[in-house]
Design a protein around this nucleic acid. Structure first.
Lengths: 193, 193
DNA sequence: TTTTTAAAAGACCGAACGGTCTATTTTAAC
DNA sequence: GTTAAAATAGACCGTTCGGTCTTTTAAAAA
């Protein structure tokens, strides 16, 4: 990794959490300059535009998060362990970093950011697939009842978690997230064979 | 309602959906000037700042929405009718107006907008209370099983709906919302006596 | 170590930002 | 219809915006 690649990565790392918190429109180049302690030239030598930094920041945030979640899943042996580990990993997403990038960028990426919207779409699909795979495998292994529709259940669980993240963020309390996570767990356990 | 009051209201009505779509930071005074066909003086004669317009727009959006939802509930006689009408009313929230203001403003109202955050908190609580009241009354009327925890269930349903709104908005498809709404309906019906 | 190449600094740019203020127009009281 | 008061227009303000470009500095090749 040469100098430019390292600087580029550094800029993304420093910018990502700011953009996740303040939004794309709400984050200015001077915010990024301050966070990186770099001047304009140092930044624009590595990126074409602020938009590019936003896109790369989103990809970095989701990749980091996906890695965390995937590792949590891998720590489990059974479908139940994998599923519960994944729920716990979601609980660990900290508000201080701005919460879930899918929601933050998804809300802002309206028709004026079509490229970003596509990235968020992919992120949603892969988040749902993580649940889907656990359930499908659980069914294949006779761990989970065949009456469960893996697609519908993974969509539902993902929606509940995103709702929970929103509530925690706005209400500044973990209570509702716990209630929601417990409800998910209860329903999941009711499907175990 | 004198001229000033009418103009003030007009500015809010015209600004609200823009701010809901583009965000507070993403909406400029020139956007508002264009939408209202008013000059700076006309706007700043009625509002202290852009921030004030944002706050009033949020209150207007949530009040309008609350009215829609409340009317849907009132159209039902039984708890089940009220509940299903409410779900249907949520489905009707159109993406073209920017989706759910609770999510849009909630995500953007970070620590730099403490006043706005309080407003969003209240909006969440009252949205959840609408579900809570239907369930509680349903239990009191022997329509719904006493085994249902109204608080937990209303929190869960609200989270699912917000998640569904996010998915619909980003994926630009109603499919997942339908799946989620149907799941809510099924669970609700399982609690009926 | 010298030389060549790559990377970063920071002055600078025009445009757009939120907001102010006076002149003018519109409303409403008489 | 005249006049006093309220409301709006729009020129103007300083600041900040995203972005460019030349100069300087640092890295890497010789």
């Amino acid at each position: 990794m040469n100098k430019a690649e390292r600087t580029r990565r550094f800029i993304i790392e420093q910018s990502a959490s700011i953009i996740n918190r303040k939004g794309m429109a709400g984050t200015s180049m001077s915010d990024i300059m301050e966070a990186t302690k770099l001047a304009k030239g140092g930044i624009y030598g590595n990126f074409e535009s602020k938009d590019e930094i936003c896109v790369e920041s989103f990809l970095y945030l989701t990749a980091t998060l996906a890695d965390q979640l995937n590792r949590a899943v891998l720590r489990g042996k059974t479908a139940r362990e994998k599923f519960l580990n994944l729920l716990d990993a979601y609980k660990e997403i900290k508000n201080t970093d701005g919460g879930c990038p899918i929601m933050n960028f998804g809300v802002e990426a309206d028709d004026t950011h079509p490229g970003m919207k596509e990235n968020v779409k992919k992120a949603i699909r892969s988040a749902q697939k993580r649940f889907f795979d656990i359930i499908s495998n659980g069914i294949a292994n006779n761990e989970i009842s065949v009456t469960v529709n893996p697609k519908n259940f993974s969509i539902k669980v993902f929606a509940m978690i995103e709702g929970a993240i929103l509530c925690r963020r706005v209400l500044e309390s973990d209570e509702q997230m716990w209630i929601i996570m417990e409800a998910i767990r209860l329903e999941f356990d009711s499907y175990l064979l």
